[in-house]
């Protein structure tokens, strides 16, 4: 799909290609299948690493690993409960499984297995799950708009929402090195490279200030960090100085960094590719209220609704999560407060 700042509807309706196409624009630097390649690289130096999928290797980029190391890959079939149970068993035998499916299936269909067999047991199982939030136009069957809300209350589970190929590549070895269960929202196909333009490295559990700014702070996670950065650049034209704090690890939350950045007197918005119920916005609000910090925060994210099917650029605009809509929101809030 396109991340461009289109607010005007296209001349003719977008076709179904735009429902599930690569997230990258044609003019963007991209990396193909960063998860698959990062996993191959990791597995070449760590014999414990194995991959599993529930009939979605090809659509989660795990096929790159499967094709490079077929003897290290287990096809479990369209059986998500059996997928997570088998991953638990392999971890019990000392292996480091990366298990892939779509985020909707890992969370909605196999929750009990993730909870009891993996999280309660404290196993090093890494779930790598595609189609987070609004990254498919197929409608609610495939759109994991509430996966983080489902999982945030699960004890001991680390939750990661990467921005781009850089995040994914750097996260993979850290997920394996982390001695416990992880859930990562995977971007697949031609994935944009964004964060290498900045002085940035992914650190599990850390939020990073990607750019500073005096007027506005965008606290963002996942692919919304890319849009937040684009919106910040566009707002420069209006002499609006925007900071972007990227929060790729949603649990455990880097509370110290968030509190430090929110203490400064700026307009604050959270940006997430997820319903604003139970995701980043709620996590930030929780910290603020608990610590008695009075700060208004405006959520940018998906509505508490089952989303429409359709082309991704259309839907991103419709639900207010496109780059253009972030900019519009910031301008409107500033004009109100000014």
């Amino acid at each position: 799909m396109s991340n461009t700042a289109t607010t005007t509807p296209p001349e003719k309706p977008l076709t179904s290609d735009a429902m599930s196409a690569s997230l990258a624009r044609e003019d963007q630097r991209v990396t193909a299948a960063p998860l698959g390649h990062a996993l191959v690289e990791l597995a070449q130096r760590d014999e414990r690493v194995v991959g599993l999928s529930a009939d979605l290797a090809k659509y989660t980029d795990l096929h790159v690993f499967r094709d490079a190391m077929p003897e290290r890959f287990y096809q479990i079939g369209m059986s998500e409960q059996a997928l997570l149970g088998a991953a638990a068993g392999l971890a019990m035998e000392g292996f480091v499984p990366f298990a892939s499916t779509y985020a909707v299936f890992a969370t909605r269909r196999a929750y009990d297995f993730l909870c009891l067999d993996i999280a309660e047991a404290g196993l090093n199982v890494n779930m790598v799950c595609a189609l987070p939030g609004l990254t498919t136009g197929y409608g609610p069957s495939h759109q994991a708009t509430e996966d983080i809300a489902i999982l945030r209350a699960m004890p001991d589970l680390t939750i990661v929402d990467p921005c781009d190929a850089v995040d994914i590549e750097q996260a993979v070895p850290q997920l394996a090195a982390h001695d416990g269960p992880t859930y990562t929202r995977i971007l697949r196909g031609k994935v944009p490279r964004v964060l290498d333009e900045y002085d940035y490295t992914f650190e599990l559990g850390k939020a990073k200030l990607i750019r500073d700014g005096a007027d506005v702070l965008l606290v963002s996670t996942g692919l919304m960090t890319e849009r937040a950065l684009e919106a910040a650049r566009e707002l420069e034209a209006d002499r609006i100085d925007v900071a972007v704090l990227h929060v790729p690890t949603l649990k455990p939350l880097d509370e110290a960094t968030i509190v430090r950045e929110l203490a400064k007197d700026r307009l604050v918005l959270t940006c997430e590719n997820h319903t604003t119920t139970g995701g980043l916005f709620d996590a930030v609000a929780h910290v603020l209220v608990r610590d008695g910090i009075a700060r208004q925060v405006t959520p940018v994210g998906l509505p508490d609704a089952f989303l429409d099917a359709g082309a991704l650029p259309t839907l991103a605009d419709r639900y207010g999560v496109s780059t253009a809509k972030i900019g519009e929101r910031v301008r409107a809030l500033l004009s109100h407060s000014g």
Binding site: Q81, A86, A87, G89, L90, M92, E93, G94
Partner: peptide, 16 residues
């Protein structure tokens, strides 16, 4: 749950 986990253990034992 048990049989799903047993599968993973059985696969792991064979690997080793």
């Amino acid at each position: 749950h048990g049989l799903t986990i047993a599968n993973g253990i059985a696969l792991g034992l064979k690997r080793k």
